[in-house]
Design a protein around this nucleic acid. Sequence first.
DNA 1: CCGCGGGCCTGAGAGC
DNA 2: TGCTCTCAGGCCCGCG
Length: 293
Amino acid sequence: MPELPEVETVRRGLQPVMEGSKILKAETRRKDLRFPFQKDFIARLEGQTVTGLGRRAKYLMADLESGDVLLMHLGMSGSFRVLKEEGQAKPGQFHHPRSEDRAHDHVVFHMSSGAAVVFNDPRRFGYMKIIARKAFEDEPLLKGLGPEPLGNEFDAKMLAQSCANKKTSLKAALLDQRVVAGLGNIYVCEALFRSHLSPRRLAATLATKKGEPTDHAKRLVSAIHTVLNQAIKAGGSSLRDHRQTSGELGYFQHSFQVYDREGEKCQTAGCNGIVRRFTQNGRSTFWCPQCQK
DNA sequence: CCGCGGGCCTGAGAGC
DNA sequence: TGCTCTCAGGCCCGCG
């Protein structure tokens, strides 16, 4: 499911019920997600106050007063729901609006704010890991990540430099989390479309021979900013699994111009192209061959 | 080091 | 109705 806008939407939903609140009880309902839970997973969470809830790329990070950080990744199908605890008398019991989903509720945090925070993940590509804040710099999961696409350091110059020596397509480069961290298949397709750049173009063409950013690089960075900001504002894109923590759907999928729109007319003004689909590095690419060059 | 393809899982939808 | 096949928003790992 989730790319940066979906993860950011989830972060904003969890923040009010987690930040400044204590984890009274934590439950894991199986021994693993993508990886086995650490043996001391529960012990390091229970009794801890969450001092901050942040995001890095597609990771959620809960800072704990102990100095630990709870790292959470939604994989392909992970989602969080915020539910109201039904009563102090029955810890572990909470109201669930979609009872048929209970089979994939794998983790629950019972917060002192009165919220039950439930992690659901049918495919279990998601995972949670607790790391010490001191060891943050060395964390292998985070170590190679490139810049935040909405951060100050990500600009045309930086993008051009990191693409300059790449031997791969622009599509593959943008999906590479070492180049820019947080984009996935949907937003790469949409950003390329909005900047009229072909997904097949060589990534290295974003830089001149002197390593300066081309106008293409500037257009692309600007399209990435626009599409991510609009998607966050829309609560993300709900194709299958993504939900806001309230259970509401995101609605940016209605604003897709190419993703999942094979065969439809190109929306670029004055273009009479048709949206096409092909496979690049094992993933579907949607684009308009007419106006993306 | 880099780029690519396989594999990890479950579920939805298409086609027969 | 039900089976089989394909595909899905991500990313680690091993190979060449």
